[in-house]
Design a protein around this nucleic acid. Structure first.
Lengths: 326, 326
DNA sequence: CTGAAAGCGCTTACAG
DNA sequence: CTGAAAGCGCTTACAG
């Protein structure tokens, strides 16, 4: 197959100018709504544009303006074997991106997307390429947060996410602090190392049980997928959740409420998060000095896996939800 | 807030050249792996690049090369009130995009994303802007497909998607043909007009019932969300699915299997679809002449809502699934 | 109000 | 192997 080179746009501003019988400067001004052209000039240009279906080249504009009107977004994705339901968990990435995009669109920006695998060797190159194509970059990482729920369990384990995730480390730190502050035993460490995946969570529990370890009374998982895997293995090995071991997740992925038992977890304002990320970046691009650390409130979603009583409402799980169109 | 203008990249290829003591032509060649530079030249350039953390400007490269290495993807999104579970349905868009992106990355392309609301007034402008920033565009629309399942129902309704969707029209056409061919009554038309949303599906059923219409024995919905809404209203009005009215969907969104009853539906190879879309586009960009119409096989997912007996397997719904890393 | 011209940061024949 | 220079398609002071 031929290398895609010199797929040069057929039409340029010169074509429009000559057809309209004006200079390229006038075409540019009309197209940008600059100055106060005579109506005749304006109309001739617009007509030529229409007749030719002319579209300005973004690269040339960007080069001339020093502004591409493109935000780069780099996400990391797993590339391992997945539980079927796990597909859904990637949703949260897309919801964040959706938030970025909505906000970006308000400013006339578009979103350039690139995902790198966790084990990608040339992350550097990929990020550099993105940097070259965009005015600024947003890099995803998982988020951290404090929580508030206490069933008086005396020992609580932290089934962690990837070791190389800053969020995971922060989460572990907060976890340990909170559990100790409550006077309970915090159980965590290398044997409790998951990887944000369901199979990772399942594997940790299986290894612990195989090694004859006594499980803590409750297990806080780094995310819902991990909890999903943990609950699966616990059930398989004859443990009742939450009677024998309580479990919580993080993210509130759609399937969380369909698990047995329904998963107690934390919901984060994903779309809003993306929107705010773009706002901060945009301010920077605009040269404003901004506070760069934005923390959004999270919401505890109490269901049954933590030991709380089943809610009497819930019904069909079909509550109407207004989606903010902004 | 200041307009973001002239956020010009600080470093250019000239900076690298002068630091390395060579011409910009040499820098460019080294960076592109062109020609056979002396090792010393090569190393001095690389070192300068490293020291300066230089990144080539994508716009300038694009302008010079006539190639941006960017695919534009335009998706349409609803902006109405949503059922909570409906969030998930947008997943399929993202899965397709994921397929595009994976394939694009193989060719050194990145994905530029833009979504337009169904009621967006300046779709034209938006698409034009995208066209200017990309080498080619992929526009989403829903897909069509034939099916194969027969419970001998004598009357079957088609609860449609948006009227302006080509896929919806194609689906309706195929539906009518198949049902008639089976010797049953096809029920469709303006009163059966949904909009791909759950509330749309719910609304149609409610209106029909309110008008005293006798429902057909089975209802084929344009997509899963529509089916979700339909089932909800049917249950609310005291109809048993599938005993009184059978219902099928289209898409196999994650929540489909958690419905009561589990939804019989069609699964499409979404990610593959995206990948193929990019391939076709890439071929065109490369100047190859390609067949542009690619049809991928779909898969019928039989569950209970159509009247089939409950599967004896299913168990925890946690089957492991290999995700092709390609 | 409008046009000629310079310049944005690269790539690439063309000489040497 | 390497450098000087033209050109990619726009935008925007600067004159007129």
């Amino acid at each position: 197959m031929a290398e895609p080179k010199r797929a040069r746009a057929t039409l340029t501003i010169y074509d429009v100018a000559s057809r309209a019988g004006v200079s390229i400067a006038s075409v540019s001004r009309v197209l940008n709504g600059l100055g106060t052209p005579r109506v005749e000039t304006r109309e001739r240009v617009m007509q030529a544009v229409r007749e030719l279906s002319f579209v300005r080249d973004g690269a040339a504009r960007a080069l001339s303006n020093g502004l591409k009107e493109v935000v780069g977004v780099v996400v990391r994705r797993g590339n391992e074997t997945l539980f079927e339901d796990e597909y859904e968990s990637f949703l949260y990435i897309d919801v964040i991106n959706r938030g970025i995009e909505v906000e970006a669109q308000r400013r006339g920006f578009d979103v350039l997307l690139s995902s790198v695998a966790y084990n990608d060797e040339n992350v550097q190159q990929r990020v550099a390429a993105m940097a070259g194509k965009a005015d600024g970059l947003i890099l995803h990482d998982r988020m951290l947060s404090p929580v508030g729920i206490d069933h008086g369990y005396r020992s609580v384990g932290y089934l962690s996410g990837r070791g190389d995730s800053p969020d995971n480390r922060a989460r572990a730190r907060v976890f340990e602090g909170e559990v100790n502050a409550a006077g309970a035993d915090a159980v965590l460490g290398p044997l409790w190392q998951g990887d944000y995946s369901a199979s990772g969570g399942a594997g940790v529990i299986a290894s612990l049980l195989d090694a004859g370890t006594k499980l803590p009374r409750a297990i806080v998982c780094a995310n819902d997928q991990t909890a999903l895997g943990a609950i699966h293995t616990l059930a398989q090995r004859g443990f009742k959740v939450p009677q024998d071991v309580a479990v919580t997740g993080f993210d509130d992925v759609p399937v969380a409420k369909h698990l047995h038992p329904p998963l107690t977890t934390i919901r984060q304002p994903m779309q809003e998060l993306g929107a705010r990320a773009f706002e901060v970046l945009y301010s920077r691009i605009s040269g404003a000095d901004t506070k760069d650390d934005v923390v959004l409130p999270v919401q505890l979603v109490v269901r049954e896996s933590c030991g709380c009583a089943p809610s009497t409402t819930a019904s069909a799980g079909m509550a109407l939800l207004a989606r903010d169109g902004r």
